[in-house]
């Protein structure tokens, strides 16, 4: 995708320019924070097999399994190892999706700051963000199904797993797809305008 050949790109001015710059900074730090969150999640899952050995506790006793001092992410003492593994897996997917969405958003904002708001690339970015959101949502639903799965005796397949599902993210995802269409239409208009002499 080549940049439009406008004589003077419609760069964001004044307050808008500043708010975009601030948003870019915030998103950059959020992306860095996400990497640390990923490490705590992986750390929690990775140290799990060693816990009963290291602390010499009874694996059946939740208190022994989970000492009160946590190095990584806070873990509910009632959670079983299977529940923690399942939750860690979905958290890794969510962090990956979040990282991807923030990266796309960053590049989109950089384009906006550079005066190229309405280009097809930005429409494609918003659509990809929407798809990443769908993947994140589906992973949550998958864990929700696992948390609801019981065997014939009524014992949960993965004990101690609690998942909350909300319709709110779907509205945001829908907005991303709608905005993608808007950006594509705007890009078409902009292209036409740029190529009018």
């Amino acid at each position: 995708m080549t940049a439009p050949t406008a004589d003077t790109p419609h760069a964001a001015q004044g307050a808008g320019d500043r708010s975009v710059a601030v948003l870019i900074k915030v998103l950059r730090y959020t992306r860095i924070a996400l990497v640390f969150v990923l490490f705590t999640v992986l750390g929690t899952a990775a140290r799990l097999p060693f816990f009963p050995l290291r602390f010499g506790g009874d694996p059946a006793d939740p208190e022994a399994r989970w000492p009160t001092v946590h190095i990584g992410a806070a873990v509910d003492p009632d959670m079983t190892a299977a529940a923690i593994y399942t939750q860690s897996a979905v958290e890794v997917i969510l962090i990956a999706a979040g990282f991807f969405i923030i990266s796309e958003m960053l590049q989109l904002l950089r384009n906006v700051a550079g005066g190229h708001a309405f280009i097809r690339e930005n429409g494609a970015r918003l659509r990809r963000m929407g798809y990443a959101g769908v993947v994140a949502q589906l992973s949550i639903y998958a864990v929700w199904i696992v948390s609801r799965t019981v065997d014939a005796a009524g014992v949960a397949a993965v004990d101690g797993l609690t998942v909350e599902i909300s319709p709110a993210p779907w509205i945001i995802i829908l907005c991303a797809f709608a905005l993608s269409t808007v950006f594509n239409d705007a890009a078409a208009l902009k292209e036409e305008q740029d190529l009018t002499v």
């Binding site: 050949t5 004589d7 292209e191 036409e192 190529l195 009018t196 002499v197």
Partner: peptide
Amino acid sequence: GVTIANLSILKTGKAKAIRFST
């Protein structure tokens, strides 16, 4: 009073429209 960039667009056949004023 039209920029060379825009005249080039016109000359190379990339233009999608031309204003009556131009």
